[in-house]
Design a protein around this nucleic acid. Sequence first.
DNA 1: TCCGGCGATTGATCTGCATCAACAACATCT
DNA 2: AGATGTTGTTGATGCAGATCAATCGCCGGA
Lengths: 239, 239
Amino acid sequence: MKISVLGEGMHCRSCHDCTARGFAICAALDKAELRELAQLSRHVRFESGATVFAQANIATSFFSVHAGTLRLYKLLPDSRRQIVGFALPGDFLGLPGLPHHEFSADAVGRVTLCQFPKESFATFAEKRPQLLRRMVELAGHELARAQEHMVLLGRRSAEEKIATFLISWRDRLSGIGRGGEILPLPMKRLDIADHLGLTIETVSRTFSKLERDGVIQTFASGVVLLDAPRAEALSAGVS
Amino acid sequence: MKISVLGEGMHCRSCHDCTARGFAICAALDKAELRELAQLSRHVRFESGATVFAQANIATSFFSVHAGTLRLYKLLPDSRRQIVGFALPGDFLGLPGLPHHEFSADAVGRVTLCQFPKESFATFAEKRPQLLRRMVELAGHELARAQEHMVLLGRRSAEEKIATFLISWRDRLSGIGRGGEILPLPMKRLDIADHLGLTIETVSRTFSKLERDGVIQTFASGVVLLDAPRAEALSAGVS
DNA sequence: TCCGGCGATTGATCTGCATCAACAACATCT
DNA sequence: AGATGTTGTTGATGCAGATCAATCGCCGGA
């Protein structure tokens, strides 16, 4: 894997017509505040596979995803990997109150982010209950997702895991206005495996099975849910 | 299982000498605020096994754990269960921004809680950045724990799961001043199994193995870590 | 056009944990 | 003391998914 970190800075033209605004923390701010926050931030871009930050490093910035997908993962010393989630436009990366990064993040395909220096962001947020409330809210959603994922990892079969992943990925995308007939899967099989607590082989076999059963149709860049109700039933844990 | 819900109210004598203060959200408040918050809250008690709230019900209150242990869990329709965590004194239950409870909570042994009506707590918090920051912080810690648990569920062996559970339980207890030679385990084997994504039999066998290997010694009410370094190594994922 | 590498798929076999089953250790009630 | 329920332990067996291994399709570079 190439680890070409090239976070090249360029000033945010305007947060005004930002496509991720509305989902992001920025939604909690008025125009004046938005302009002030833009002063603190800079836009950065990462190419496919590049590492944005690494687990256990000291966190000096927060990020808000502008475009693209990131994989967030933790490694064990023997290199077993668990992908704890994928970040999409609007997601906030970084936890106030924890000095180190709790996980590593790298780009799945090209990614652009808003970067905020931790210090100045904290001072900015300190006096703005609206923003803080929004952050509590986002953290809450994140936590709920994490708990749902624990159920998946601890108590579901391979087939249920894949079905659940597809359904929740579809729902997340449509939540940010990216719904569509074909469900894009920018991440590789290995990423899916490490997200669901499986191996690549099992992921592949399960995709094949779902395709044989007429639940999905696979393409190079994603899948189509031919039988969404069936997938939803598997995801719900029925049958 | 008996579901005897008897949350009997009684007014909080004083938050001043509360044993959970210092860990809880209350730590962010000064004396005057503390008194004001106490006005909103009431103390409630639940007997062993009682349900404090149930998944998918509308959340009308927040809680702060005062004493005892709770199990927080999600159920699948076919009654598979995943315990997403155990709550201890100082833990905050409830997520602003989500109308329903995301999981069920019931008492492991006798439990006492501070209960806050959601509405009035929200109004109280709205103007207090300190409190909001504390909540972001708590949510962040919770999220970090959840992510660590995903690694456990997705990528660790039964033996590593048990060792990791014991170590992190020990650390949580000592974090709230409950450290000691003997590590109390108020929850049952089935709870541990449903927390770690295992069956009771595997939990029992693994405890037996760790005891045979001289890593732990089991008692009715808990375990002693005879060889903590060995347990920590298993937990770290080495060996 | 051929070659090499990467990702995905498929097959054969192995194994860690689940499942099924019996029993032991206690506590509570009659 | 005996009956009954609850929790935990241990053994025998089965299976879902891991592991090992081969092959295929595709893309980019020589």
